[in-house]
Nucleic acid binder design. Structure first.
Length: 491
DNA sequence: GTAGGGTTAG
């Protein structure tokens, strides 16, 4: 279709917050009383006996506040049972009442473990305390249903909002559309949009969401149709609309179309923003046109558009993947020196992956250590990358060493960490490795992750072949406990 | 925290 009808709204440049991480394990002083940090409390929860936890949490030295509770919950994110234990113990505190956002976190954690009963019980509890539920609560539930392959339940959750005393408005409607699109149920979202067109006064956001959905599944012609429909209904596109479509062209490998669209945007004197530039830099780089990426980056600076950390990360990643990690590091250092942008965890992860990829594990580890200089902590993703590459190179011991290092931090492993390590335990065909695989499997279940059937069978077979029958039986019992959940969920 | 850009896989 022709883009001639599109009229542009001039938008201010987006100002993304830069990351200023907090020091860890510090004890802040409040009214002369030593107040433990979120890290200290998270460690306490991980280490203490559930029976004595209340006592520790009810100490008057801890001044509970929603921010502190939320930070602790975030730290315990990859240990669902402990996170919920913490939340429930604190729920019985004589003087502290959880706020809505803490309830939302807890509900998210319960739903992520597929425990919808617990999640809805928390919704009931927050309602009885008159702390919600809020539209955000329903967005979280819907998102979990959609992510767990239950898009219809996601929609029903949205439709049931008013039954729980929560108003359905355009914002919450757009949120559910977005959730469906992000879980690739774009047709369903589109149908929903058409169904509720008369009930909600749809805006540009609604249409942008659907167009983006079609772009995500690489159906740019449908995205264009949606935008055409939008314009015909008298809604003007915005910079978000254009950037969405531009990204869509790159995603479906329509590089020529992307370039033409970008030129068209420039020609029409659109106020090309930092997102447009980042999209183009990344898009060309991924397509192997690194020189073009660099030229666009330089043009951007020349035009006076300040690159964001995402822009820098895009260029650095592109150089790592399609040029050389050495050149990427040159850009990294230059950006820091010139103060163009402050590196964040993503920047480091990109560079670390770059070094891992060329087999330079020493420098990868060096950059991990350097993160502290910027007050950054290695994320679980950082560890996953390094563990994966160590294991791929057959250095299983080093992979396990990194896993131990995580434990010391503590940085809780996620599903990927366990999957990578368990797979690695089959490489050396050693009996001890299979016992480790079994232990990892037990640990991940303990922490609220549900291993795939394939993983269970693989570990079980391995243990039986290497003569670890007793351990295999133990795992089998654990599997049947999980099996009840699996059957209920039809996974 | 109603929508668009940067990480983890060859």
């Amino acid at each position: 279709m022709s883009q001639k009808r599109f009229r542009l709204h001039l938008l201010p440049l987006s100002k993304k917050h830069r990351q200023f991480p907090l020091p860890r394990n510090v004890v802040t002083v409040c009214d002369g009383v030593q107040q433990p940090s979120d890290a200290t409390i998270a460690n306490l929860v991980l280490e203490s006996d559930p029976l004595t936890l209340s006592e520790a949490l009810f100490k008057p030295t801890i001044q509970w506040a929603p921010e502190l509770v939320n930070k602790v919950l975030k730290r315990l994110w990859n240990h669902g049972p402990k996170a919920l234990q913490f939340f429930k113990h604190l729920d019985r505190h004589p003087a502290y009442i959880h706020c809505a956002s803490s309830f939302d976190h807890a509900i998210d954690i319960a739903a992520r473990m597929h425990d919808y009963n617990a999640a809805w019980a928390l919704v009931g509890r927050m309602r009885s305390l008159r702390r919600g539920p809020t539209p955000r609560t329903f967005a979280i539930l819907a998102e979990r249903y959609a992510a767990n392959g239950k898009p219809h339940r996601a929609v029903r959750t949205f439709l049931s909002m008013h039954e729980h005393g929560c108003r359905q408005d355009l914002n919450s409607f757009n949120t559910v559309l977005d959730i469906l699109c992000k879980s690739k149920r774009v047709e369903m979202a589109h149908t929903l949009l058409k169904t509720f067109r008369s009930r909600f006064k749809l805006d540009c956001v609604s249409y942008n969401i659907i167009a983006n959905g079609y772009c995500l599944i690489k159906r740019t012609p449908m995205a264009l149709n949606v935008l055409k429909d939008m314009v015909q209904r008298g809604i003007n596109p915005t910079m978000v609309t254009y950037n969405t479509l531009l990204k869509g062209y790159f995603r479906s490998n329509q590089i020529k179309e992307a370039w033409e669209f970008y030129l068209e945007m420039k020609k029409r004197k659109c106020e090309i923003d930092v997102v447009t530039y980042t999209t183009v830099i990344h898009g060309f780089g991924v397509a192997g046109e690194v020189k073009k990426s660099r030229r666009v980056f330089d043009a951007m600076v020349k035009e006076g558009v300040a690159p964001s950390v995402a822009t820098c990360n895009a260029l650095i990643q592109v150089l790592c993947k399609k040029d050389s990690v050495e050149n990427a590091v040159v850009v990294f250092e230059e950006m820091m020196r010139k103060g163009l942008c402050v590196p964040n965890v993503v920047t480091y992860n990109v560079v670390i992956r770059g070094f891992c990829h060329v087999g330079d594990m020493e420098r990868a580890l060096g950059f991990m250590r350097r993160m502290g200089e910027h007050g950054l902590r290695c994320s679980v993703q950082t560890y996953n990358v390094v563990i994966r590459y160590f294991c791929d190179a057959g250095e299983i011991e080093k992979g396990l060493e990194m896993f131990e290092k995580m434990r010391d931090e503590p940085c809780l492993p996620n599903l990927d960490t366990y999957n990578v390590l368990i797979s690695a335990m089959f490489l050396r065909k050693k009996s001890e490795d299979l016992v480790v695989a079994g232990k990892l499997l037990m640990e991940m279940v303990d922490r609220g992750f549900l291993p795939r059937k394939f993983t269970f069978n693989r570990v079980l077979n391995g243990l039986v072949i290497t003569g670890n029958q007793d351990f295999a039986k133990e795992i089998l019992r654990m599997q049947s406990r999980c099996g009840r959940i699996v059957r209920r969920l039809k996974l």
